[in-house]
Write a protein that binds this DNA or RNA. Sequence first.
RNA 1: GGAGCAAUACCCAAGUUGGUGAAGGGGCUUCCCUGCUAAGGAAGUAGGUCGGGUAACUGGCGCGAGAGUUCGAGUCUCUCUUGCUCCGCCA
Length: 426
Amino acid sequence: MIDINLIREQTTFVAEALAKKGWKVNFDELLEQDAQRRTLRQVVENNKAEQNRLSASVPVVKKAGGNINELFAKVKQLKLDNEAKELELNSLDSTINKVLFELPNLPDSDLLAGGKENNKVIHVFKKAPSFDFKIKDHVELCESLGLIDYKRAAKISGNGTWIYKGLGAMLEWALINFFVSEHIKDGYEMIIPPHILNYESGFTAGQFPKFEEDVFWLEGMSPRRFLLPTAETALVNFHRDEILTEEELPHKYFAYTPCYRSEAGSYRTEERGMIRGYQFNKVELVQYTKEDQSDVAFEELVGKARSLVEKLGLHFQISKLAAGDCSHSMARTYDIEVWIPSMGIYKEVSSVSNARDYQARRGLMRYRDKETGKIKYLHTLNASGLATSRLVPAIVEQYQTKDGEVIIPEVLRPFMGGIEKISLPR
RNA sequence: GGAGCAAUACCCAAGUUGGUGAAGGGGCUUCCCUGCUAAGGAAGUAGGUCGGGUAACUGGCGCGAGAGUUCGAGUCUCUCUUGCUCCGCCA
């Protein structure tokens, strides 16, 4: 959430920053309402103060034998006078909040304006593998090798789903295991969160109110709850309404969860197979930091995501996203994109983002400054580490042989009982 | 799903309405004694949030959440949420 005070004091700055994200905002009306709210608040609060004063004097007057009924009437009248104004104040609050809650985060100043077209590749690992045979795409490979079963998934579930089976399931699980072990090694605390979250969690993360349609809501639960679209939503809410001590920071968490997304109507032929589905697997990293630690944390997260893909030996690139391509809640995002040979394109397997204080403001996540004793907002960051369901296509395609087999990346072998390659079933 | 109990500040905890953020501990800060530690004594501090003010300071809210009764609610009423105990069901 953007601080209303910032909007008031640096209106042009905020508007220009949002414009880089493609948001054309005019704050005139908002600021007008804000000004109204501030004067109205003074009036209402002064009235309340008077009410409080009079009420407090009741026992004193009573003791002195004064006229209490007069006081009663006075307070009652003050209360009546205030009623309409209070309603107006409330309605101003919700009008202002409606706008405020939907505004995206401000992009960092070094980001280029505009969308995808202005993303900048800032790092490339390896060259795209070249093949001296006709390559197969991951759907073909996974089916012929018996790794994925799309047909039965359609039978037991429906479109947008798939079944990992046999070595396919083992490969997916090996990736998860590999990532888990790396994150534990790096001192991240492992979390297994609930997959069913309440509205407040979606709000704090910044998904709601804007993207309520993109998640699966559960029927029959009151108050309503939804399936997490990423573990970030759970992890970034751990310290909601909390004040941490400086010693606890930075705090680093990770979790593996499936991610459930409705994203209705967003499917394209480019995204057949396992590129996009209603449910996919991802290991997610989250850091809570002080404001002056978040840049370092960001680099650490980029480094971690990068090193994981490197260890898998995959050709990939890192893109620094233009302001408009960063997620709604994020001030800055780098994507790690892995090469999918059959498509000739790069697909995101990790998104590393710094939300700065955007989520912290929404969820009142703070820490106490040791020096000054003051309360400050935390910074939150998150990174996929990594999206395993997107990696399997990259691995089978980049590691395919002319016989239609797939070599297992070395780092995964210990997690797959030492198997070196996946052969065609006899 | 049924029945009962609970929800107070960083933690524990008192408090069935009339001058107040709310006794008391723990904790924390400073000092003293002992002085490696442990233990003891004295004083102090004690939440957050939204406003006003250059500042000192000051106002609103606030005792799980929301609504109500009342001049006045931690304290009464209603709804909800969460936790605990017992029963039922169950991976």
